[in-house]
Write a protein that binds this DNA or RNA. Structure first.
Length: 202
DNA sequence: GCATCGATGGTG
DNA sequence: ACCATCGATGCA
């Protein structure tokens, strides 16, 4: 018989999945499927790149600036979305991880579109925009049925590197908290294969 | 292919 | 003033 929540396309992940450290969750997210139901449609993508942010001690984390209106959701229970606006243009989609109060979170940086969806999801700004994830989704509950994750049983081979774009983070700049699917060509940045349409010829 | 730069507005 | 980014531009 089918497990409950079996969708034919994977099993929906529940609260306990999110209640692991940011580092463990960031690694576990590679290969999972992000689903966003909006306006009668369903957008789905397979996550291939993430970064962990480990709370106030982590100088790269927004939570290191303290508990503010912006960072409040990170200090709450795991499994909520932390969505923030940056560079005057982009939304960033994160998932709150770990124990309540620890303010761990995982930035979802890249995914492969599914179901024939033709979209470039290689980069956190592009991913959030194309998934239709907005600041108004800050605090959304991923154990709900609008924005959530599926486990298909994928076991991708995972690469690790320092995080991108955090040169201000002191001793944390080189900490290897970025995770990615070694076999995916949708990974952004270093180690990723942003391979174009194959124009290697002259 | 790689380095540099400007857009654009919330945040502390 | 800075920023968990991106696309355009210039040059090789």
């Amino acid at each position: 018989m089918e497990p409950r929540n079996r969708n034919g396309r994977g099993r929906k992940l529940g609260l306990s999945f999110y209640q692991q450290s940011g580092e463990a969750l960031a690694r576990a997210l590679i290969g999972k499927v992000l689903v966003h139901r909006v306006e009668g449609k369903q957008l789905r993508g397979r996550i291939v790149e993430t970064e962990a942010y480990l709370g106030p001690a982590d100088l790269a984390s927004h939570s290191s600036k303290g508990r503010t209106k912006r960072t409040e959701v990170m200090f709450g229970r795991a499994g909520y979305a932390y969505v923030y606006f940056i560079y005057g243009m982009y939304e960033m989609f994160n998932i709150v991880a770990g124990m309540t109060g620890h303010a761990h979170a995982v930035l979802v940086r890249a995914a492969e579109p599914l179901d024939g969806w033709d979209a470039d999801l290689s980069g956190p700004g592009k991913l959030a925009t194309r998934f239709g994830i907005l600041r108004s989704d800050n605090g959304a509950d991923l154990t709900g049925d609008k924005l959530f994750l599926l486990d298909r049983g994928d076991r991708p081979e995972i690469g690790v590197s320092p995080r991108i774009g955090i040169d201000y983070a002191g001793e944390w700049v080189d900490t290897p908290l970025r995770f990615f699917d070694l076999a995916s060509n949708a990974v952004s940045g270093p180690k990723g294969r942003t391979r174009g349409a194959g124009k290697t010829r002259s």
